[in-house]
Each structure stands twice: as C-alpha cells, then as structure tokens.
C-alpha cells in the first residue's frame, strides 16, 4: 500500500510540475492544483497510513495521528483560496494584455533578452 501511495504522490508531483512550467495560464493553474493534491497527500502520509482508526475519541484502542490531518485540512482550504486568486489574476491578465500567456506575451512575440 505504501508503494502505491508513494507512486501516486510521485505521479501527481511530476504532472503538476510539468503543467506548472507551461506558458499559458490555464495549464499552470491545473498544475498548481495537482501540485497541491500532491503536497496535501505528502503531508498527510507523514502521519503514516492507518485504516479504520479515525482520530475521534471513542472506546477504540488506537487512533491515527490527528496533527497532519489538521494541518492538511486548512491547507486544502487555503489552496482553494490560492487557486481562485491565481485564476482571477489570469483573467485579469487576459483582460489587460489580450492573451493568456503567463509572461503577458506569446513566446514568439517576446523580444529576445
């Protein structure tokens, strides 16, 4: 199971990084979203994997680590805020500059510096 999770995190990270390096705004936002999944999962597994032992106090003998969960919970909400902000920035850039390239110009229009 651990190997599967590690693989999933790896694939998510790779996909996110690749998309984040694209030139248009929309793939960058997709990439950031994928990266935040990867980071959230990564943080979550720092508490190790455990099945059927939620951190809700009851008569159970063991619980999983609640701390990474609390951190990840706020991280999910914050990353939503960030995604929203970035996508609106992208819209604003499109309104102001007339294109959806992250640098405000298409690669072929950019003057070589």
């Amino acid at each position: 199971m651990e190997a599967l999770l590690a693989l999933v995190i790896g694939v998510l990270t790779a996909s996110g990084v690749f998309l984040a390096l694209r030139g248009q705004t929309f793939p960058v936002v997709l990439g950031l979203t994928l990266l935040s999944y990867a980071v959230n999962l990564f943080l979550f597994v720092m508490g190790r994997l455990a099945i059927g032992v939620p951190p809700v106090i009851s008569s159970a003998a063991a619980y999983t680590d609640p701390l990474p969960q609390a951190l990840v919970l706020t991280a999910i909400v914050i990353s939503f805020g960030m995604t929203a902000f970035v996508i609106v920035l992208a819209l604003k850039a499109r309104a102001e500059l007339g294109n959806d390239h992250v640098d405000g110009v298409h690669a072929d229009e950019a003057d070589p510096r």
Binding site: A6, L7, I9, G10, V11, L12, T13, A14, S15, V17, F18, L21, A38, F42
Partner: peptide
C-alpha cells in the same frame, strides 16, 4: 524536470 521532481517526491 517533472520526472526528477516526481521520482524525488515518490522516493
């Protein structure tokens, strides 16, 4: 870059 980053994260 993406492959290196992904394998790093997985490992």
């Amino acid at each position: 870059i993406a492959l290196v980053a992904g394998s790093g994260a997985a490992l």
